[in-house]
């Protein structure tokens, strides 16, 4: 491996590492707020990329139908959860959030899709279609399980993953798609040609991470999320609604997932089930960070990206094996640091 190949590999690794980092951040967020190990995170990536590909082709994205269906299910779940205490105001909000919003997006998609409105409106539309799915899924699947153990939540997350993957197959078929690059050209940095797309990915990841940081440190809702993460009961006692925080966390997760999908769409071919492995790598990074530290998760994600990129050059068939067995020592170290028998 000569130095220039090495640098190209590192560049590739950093690009995919940046995506894993974004996913890791959102997994940490979801876990700390709701205790859910969010296996379906990757499905949002696939949905984002494939919705974008459909829009580019000028076709109606069928994920919009799914959004509508999830909205209706969420409306029912939301009503069932609150039927004893619901006020008119809350009912109105529920209807607006779960029925009106997806209907508007659906109509918008129906009207906009055949017109091929161009890169930016298409991206925004793809994000608008995928992002609300997060809160709806929280209402449907996880809110009724809010008191369950982490393990039950994990198994439920696997259930959601199965369902979403199945819908991915129904909507997009078994063939993969690639979207057009939105930052053509490249930049010479010393001996390496850095593609515009990689720079874009890195820039967007850093910007998003910084944005999350600002939201968490400065805004009231960020503080509420942090509070819920630290102590659910305590948060409730001071008037923070844990289920609202859960929905927000899931919304952020869906948004980050969809955005990651848009970012990698032009780099690799995305299939309906690609999300699982991509999400799992973000997840590995999050686990390495013990599911609690954002900076550690980001650093681990970059390391995984680079390791994977180097492995795919020198032992491509064993790329996944190398990445996944590498986490076992880390898991061991983490659980040695963290546990003794006493916690039950």
């Amino acid at each position: 491996m000569d130095p220039s190949i090495f640098l190209i590999l590192v560049q590739d690794g950093l690009t995919s590492g940046a995506i894993y980092a974004l996913l890791a951040l959102s997994l940490v967020l979801v876990f700390t707020v709701t205790r859910v190990i969010f296996i379906p995170q990757g499905e949002f990536v696939a949905f984002g990329a494939l919705t974008m590909a459909t829009l580019e082709a000028g076709e109606f994205p069928r994920t919009a139908i799914m959004l509508l269906g999830l909205g209706i299910a969420a409306a029912i779940a939301g009503y069932l959860a609150e039927r004893r205490v619901i006020t008119k105001r809350r009912l109105a909000w529920l209807i607006a959030e779960t029925l009106l919003l997806p209907a508007v997006i659906f109509v918008l998609a129906l009207w906009l899709a055949p017109r091929k409105p161009g890169l930016l409106p298409e991206m925004l539309l793809a994000l608008a279609i995928v992002t609300p799915m997060g809160p709806y899924i929280h209402r449907i699947a996880f809110r009724p399980l809010a008191e369950a153990s982490t393990l039950v939540l994990l198994i439920a997350a696997v259930g959601v993953h199965l369902t979403l993957t199945g819908f991915g197959l129904v909507f997009f078929g078994a063939e993969g798609s690639r979207t057009t690059s939105f930052a053509s050209g490249s930049l010479a940095l010393g001996p390496v040609m850095v593609t515009g797309q990689s720079l874009f990915v890195l820039g967007a990841s850093i910007a998003l991470a910084f944005m999350l940081y600002l939201v968490f440190e400065l805004s009231l809702i960020g503080k509420a999320l942090k509070g819920t993460a630290v102590n659910r009961l305590g948060a409730r006692l001071v008037g923070i609604e844990p289920s609202l925080c859960g929905r927000i966390a899931f919304g952020v997760a869906a948004f980050i997932g969809a955005l990651s999908g848009l970012l990698i769409g032009p780099i690799t071919t995305v299939y309906y089930d690609s999300g699982f492995l991509i999400g799992l790598k973000g997840f590995v990074a999050a686990i390495v960070a013990g599911l609690v530290s954002y900076p550690a998760a980001a650093a681990a994600a970059l390391a995984i990206g680079i390791m994977e990129s180097l492995a795919s050059f020198s032992a491509s068939a064993f790329k996944e094996v190398i990445v996944f067995t590498a986490i076992i020592p880390v898991l061991l170290w983490r659980s040695l640091v963290h546990t003794r028998l006493g916690e039950e």
Binding site: I37, T150, L151, L154, L280, F283, V284, I287, L291, E320, V321, F324, T325, I327, I328, L331, L332, R334, S335, L336, H338, T339, E343
Partner: peptide, 19 residues
Amino acid sequence: TLNLSGHYLPVGTIAWNIS
């Protein structure tokens, strides 16, 4: 793997199975 506690164990088994 069984030294892993809580949710680390399921994750560890996922990693083994994929490998």
